[in-house]
Design a protein around this nucleic acid. Structure first.
Lengths: 157, 157
DNA sequence: CGGCAGTCGTTTACACGTCAACAACATGGT
DNA sequence: ACCATGTTGTTGACGTGTAAACGACTGCCG
């Protein structure tokens, strides 16, 4: 095998820094979320995706695709969240195989209370530490990398 | 609760972009690693940390601290890697409670063959897509965020 | 219509991580 | 030397992710 192009110092710093940031930042934000709102990060993602869906409900496969989760994973997770009363399963009218996942009243209140604290946590450990130039740079970096990994995806609100 | 400072468009783009990049980039790089070298990302991290240790061996707790892993996780993972002949456990001379984890001949060959392919994968999906300004910016971002989460850590080679 | 490839969601078996408890040992003060 | 306290690495119980197989159902083509 030909000698590869090893990473130079800047590249190494960026890659290792990214990996370490990913480890610590996600752990910290998840911990805050769990302590302050009783939600795991995946819980929050599910509730968040449902909140921004029409009628606060969505087909299981649609939801899985949107979240980039496997159907299996989502099915299991929805089962657990259903036990806790955060979401509910409904039959799909147009397809007898299908399931529709819906936000419950309790789930809605939970995400509404969790969201502001979560935003504060993200600010505390991340956004507020960076300059607006850095924020823009990171947005551009993510966009570039994702354009290759997930063509045709938008980072819309 | 007072109305929180919601994220503006740039901040939202950076945060969501980061989260989605983390999801897809790590999945892609891990998949390459497993297909090309038969190693999981955690496997690679362990081998990598051992390779850059004196004598290709290290106390279990030291290794766990360095990797930011729990001792439990490392102990279990070392057990599995031992089964595959990648590492071996030795008794510690200076502390009868202790274990020393050592790279085997097979483990060394494996990481040496895996490294160039892994670097190529990181380049393909990440480093080579970015300008040197973006690489430097990301290094700075990670450094800033980590300074708060892991005070007194260095991103040394 | 009838049949059949394909999709939907669930489930089974397994891999892997965490937390808490544990035995074995180290360490420091008296 | 002795005991209290803390550390080390492993383990059991558990929660959660994946891959593959599955039954139920759809939709299309002959």
């Amino acid at each position: 095998m030909a000698e590869p192009r090893w990473l130079d110092d800047d590249e190494f710093r960026a890659w290792i820094g990214y990996r370490r940031m990913r480890l610590l930042l996600d752990a910290q934000v998840s911990q805050d979320l769990l302590r302050e709102s009783g939600l795991s990060a995946p819980d929050y993602d599910v509730l968040s995706a449902l909140t921004s869906s029409e009628g606060h409900r969505r087909r299981l496969t649609e939801l899985a695709d949107r979240m980039l989760w496997s159907k299996s994973r989502l099915s299991r997770h929805i089962g657990r969240m259903e036990q806790r009363g955060l979401v509910s399963r409904e039959e799909c009218e147009s397809d007898a195989r299908g399931s529709v996942v819906a936000l419950t009243e309790h789930g809605l209140r939970t995400i509404q209370e969790a969201a502001p604290r979560h935003v504060e946590s993200v600010r505390r450990h991340f956004v507020d530490l960076l300059t607006s130039e850095q924020i823009q740079a990171l947005g551009g970096i993510a966009e570039t990398v994702l354009a290759r990994l997930a063509p045709g995806e938008e980072l819309g609100r």
